[in-house]
Amino acid sequence: MMMTRADALVILLCSLLVAGSYAWLWTPAAPATQVRVVAGDREVARLPLDQPRQLEVAGPAGITLVEIRDGAVRCAASPGSQGICQQAGWLRQAGDMAVSLPNRIIIEVLGDEWVFDSVNY
């Protein structure tokens, strides 16, 4: 069995292509660094967690205030009468979230390192 230079080149190129695609597609996800804010059915913001800022999000019940500080995000103020959105506290782990049902707003920390696939409550 003889292998020509062209055959060797094909194998080399294929190997490089496969190695490159694995490095590109299978790189482990970075730790949670972003927060996603959804109002109603629409994503209104996707923000980095390492840059302090405040964001006012309008919903049907009023304004929800989203605050980012020290690598975490919280629902600082929201119109629900029971303060459920604010009670979620500072969110910093992937999957953490605060929800205002009256104002139809979801604040969630993005990432792939989830401890649980889903939480029952």
Partner: peptide, 8 residues
Amino acid sequence: RPWRIGVR
């Protein structure tokens, strides 16, 4: 693996 569910 199985699904992992947390109970709050």
